[in-house]
Each structure stands twice: as C-alpha cells, then as structure tokens.
Design a protein around this nucleic acid. Sequence first.
DNA 1: TCTTGACTCTCAAGTTACTTGAGAGTTTAT
DNA 2: ATAAACTCTCAAGTAACTTGAGAGTCAAGA
Lengths: 284, 284
Amino acid sequence: MCVKRRYMIKIGEFSKLVQVPVATLRYYDQVDLLKPVNVDRFTGYRYYSTSQLPRLHRILALKGLGFSLEQISLLLDEDLSTEQMRGMLRMRHAQISQEILAMQDQLSEVELRIDQIEREPQLSNYDVLLKRVDPLLVAFIRAILPDHSKSGSLFGEVYEAIAPYVSKALHPNPELGGQTLVMWFDTEFKETDVDGAAAFMLRCPIPESGRVKVEELPAALMASTIHHGAYDTIGDAHEAIVTWIDANGYRIVGADRELNLHHTPPIRRDNPNYITEIQYPVEK
Amino acid sequence: MCVKRRYMIKIGEFSKLVQVPVATLRYYDQVDLLKPVNVDRFTGYRYYSTSQLPRLHRILALKGLGFSLEQISLLLDEDLSTEQMRGMLRMRHAQISQEILAMQDQLSEVELRIDQIEREPQLSNYDVLLKRVDPLLVAFIRAILPDHSKSGSLFGEVYEAIAPYVSKALHPNPELGGQTLVMWFDTEFKETDVDGAAAFMLRCPIPESGRVKVEELPAALMASTIHHGAYDTIGDAHEAIVTWIDANGYRIVGADRELNLHHTPPIRRDNPNYITEIQYPVEK
DNA sequence: TCTTGACTCTCAAGTTACTTGAGAGTTTAT
DNA sequence: ATAAACTCTCAAGTAACTTGAGAGTCAAGA
C-alpha cells in the first residue's frame, strides 16, 4: 500500500502544479467534477495523478469560456458528439453577445448620468427606467384642451358617467384621485390646443355614454419616471424622460400617460407633495 | 387605527404598482433598503405609501446601472455630494469597461473554438489556458542540438553535476523524470541546430560546474497546454498553442518550456501515456 | 354572522462556485 | 521524539433573491 503512494500526488502538490487552490480541488471532488484517482481509506487523503491533468485543463478552459460547472460536467462526462459540442459553443456565443450588448447599454446609461452631473449638478433628480406595463381598462374622454393644465376639468364628466358602476367597476379606493390618469396624444410639443384625455382605471367593462369611451390600453414597454411635486412643474419630468429616451436609443411609439398616484391622505394637484408617474411607450 | 390604514398600500398592490415581486419588497425591507412606512404591530402587515415611489425608483435605476444593493444603500442613505456621486459613477464606468473587454476576449475564444471544430472536427484536442507561474530555480545545460529529439541526452550530464546535492536540492521524487524540463530559445521554428536546454528544478541553490548553470527563471504569464502522448507528437501541441496565442492577440516573449510531468509509475518518453506541459511566456 | 378565496405573515432552504475557519488527525524532517 | 507542515471533515458565509410550508388576516358575498 505504501508503494503505490510514492507515485501519487498529494493535493498540495497537485494544487501547485495546476495553480488551483486546494479548497477548490476538494470542491471539485465533492461535486464529482474531478475525483482523485485514489483516496486513502483510513486517512481520507486524496491522491492525484498526472493523467488527470488533461481533464483538469479542459475544465479550466471551459470555465474560461464561461460555462458553469454543471455544463462542464455534461460536456466532459457525456463525451458528446462534435455536433453537440458545436451546439453548446453556439449557445454560449449568443449568450455572450447578449451580455455584451446589455453591458454596452449599461455603459451608455452610466455615461449619460455622468454627463448630466457635469452639466447641471442640481437638476438631474429624475430616475428613468424601463418597465413592462400590463393591459389597462379605462373609461375616458378625449378632447382638445386649451392647455395642459386643463385636463382636470374632464374628470368630473367622466366620473358622472361611471358613477352608477362605482362599487363594481372602480378600484376600491374611496377617494377620487386614486386611480386616474391623463394621456397626451400630440406627437410634437404644443403649448395650446393640446390633444389629451382624462381616464379612470376600471376593473370590469361598463357601457359607454356620450363623450365617455371605454377601452383596453394594450400592454407596452414604458420609459417611466416619478414626478414628486406640484403639477405645474411636471414639464421638468417630461424633459428628463424624453432626454433619456433619446440618449438611450429608444423612440416614442404612442401617447404618454400621467398617472395620478393615490395619496395618504388625499391631496390636491398643486400640493408640493403630489406624486405622478409619467410613462412614455417606447421601442428600440 | 383603521382610519390610517385606508390610505396605505398593501404589499400586493404596491408590488403591482412598481412591477417588483412581493418577495423582493420583503427582502428590501429585511436589508433596510426600503422599509414600509408602517407595519401593523399585531399582524405584521406591511403598508407602503406613494411617497416611497421616488426612492424605489431610484433604487431600481441604480440597480440598472449595475450597483450592488449595498452600494445603493450608501448612495441613498449617506446622501452624498455631487462629487462623491460622480466618483461612484466613474468607478462603475471603469468596471463596466473592464467587463466588456473580458467578455469580448471570451467571445473571441469561443469563436476560435467554433472555427476549429468546423475546420477539423478531430484534431482540436488541446485546451490552452493562461496561467501565472512562480519563479523557478533550475540547474541546466544550454546547447545547440542537432534536432529537438536530442534534448534527453543532456540530462545525464546535468544529473551528474547535481548528484552530490540530490537529497537537499532536488525535489523529493525518487525517480528521474519527476522534475525536469526542456527549454527552447529559438525565436523562429528550426528543424536542425536548435538552441535548447535541459533543466532540473531545484529547491535551493547549488554551485555551478562546467557546462551546468544555475538560474532562477522569473515569474511569468504563460499560455499553457497539456500534451498527452509520446514525445514525437509534441509538435501538434506546439502548433495548437501558437495558434491560440496568435488568435487571442498575445505574443511570445521568451523561451518556451516543456515540463516532463512525473508519472505513476514512471514511464519513458516514447510511451503513449507520457504527459508533458508546454508553456509559452506571453504578453498582450 | 359565517364562509370562502385571496392575501399576508414568518421562517427555512435552495441557488453558484467557491472561501474561510475550527478542530482534529497525518506525514515528514530534524 | 517532536515540531512544522500538511491534510481531513464539517459548517457557515457570500449576493440577491426565489420557492415552499404552515399559519394567520382581510374583504366580499350568502
């Protein structure tokens, strides 16, 4: 039994040989990725052989390509066809390409933020992010308004139309100001005669009546930001989000929305603690 | 107590509002990243408010830039200066750039492997990888040899010179063939009159004698591969490693080494189970 | 008032590829 | 014989969640 040992490599020496930490070799043993050729039955000492070097080298190479240990186990133990190997490599290739693109997007977002800070240290208080929003059933009136601040005047009329269905169809917030939003349809910026709509979110369909229409807004990818402040400063938020959309290579593909988020306790639109979420539907 | 509740948002609704899973919100609570404004003392129910949306939005935005939750905690709670914020962003910028470069390297390695498979489905049996090797003390003879296969003839002479110090200076492997290597100094490929050296690794310095020199080879970055087979086919391994070095944008910056790895039991160089590690010092 | 279904709570464990540490046993050199 | 160096087996920690079990809570309809 001792004769055999002389030719075996103990874990420490093997570790130096391959520049892999001892603990890692033990871990590879544990997960059956690389078992020592021999384990002393009494002391538990692991003994390796040079004949295991090609396998370990392959493990390290595949790890360098970014495969997980589980994938590597498959690649080594199933001893698969050239076809399958190529398949794995192609998958990995696609995956890495994806990740690089994601990283590059992230990089340009970071650059945008740095630019913003350098240019105007104060102003950049808006965090824009992408989100996927669910379809949304709404009752609304669309009209040409003298200017943006007048959207509130439509809500009364919409509310009258849905009043009979409030308990069924409206979200269960007792206060007005809970589940309303405004939409703007103009594709370019206008100060006057703006094309907008005031809407209530619904939980189930109700009949239309007069100017009040009912529609399901489809799911969409939205660039979104939160405006915290009185409504008359909301232009800043729009500016920030449009800048972001532009700088990140997206384009606007529909009407934007202003969601009046409900409050605790309910407050009016000109309160400096008013909170609005602004969403622009976008595509790359 | 009930009055207050009416205006609060339960976790499920908040989750829908911001498109973040409930479990994640609970996790953010746990790690003090975003605590609900109110927790029912008796039921433990979490209640959120719209006033927390700006903070959560900022969290998600910073996460999108790749910051860790710990960093985000700092960024939000320390409410740091513009200067510090810029510093963080610059760091992150550098980090992402690094990662992109690493990914691109990985990508070209994967591409190299795919190419190899497409061109010659059989041959690509060598896994090349980079490793940093430690400084190495050796006793060696350097000479012009008629061809590569004659390097073995020098070992006898080296061994004679170090024989008196075997027990102190040599690694404790009783067999020859344990700790020897060959180096090749020619910078271009030659068939005949090759400039090579045969070396023994030492654990401590010994005096030089005659043609036998003693030197410490410095630490270096090596492209390395394992050759498993008789010595006369070692050319394949050299070819594979040189191709790899070329394809990955490195260049060779010194003499390459062939390490004769010790065997269990000891075998001769023409045995098909002979194992050799080949190393080329490289730089980008 | 009761029931039912949807919602919420608190643990605990699993994920990846290791790393670190404690406490105990083994080998090797002097 | 002894001390230094080496090895062993657990167990726990890492990041940012996700999943599941088992139990309690809430809101709406009968």
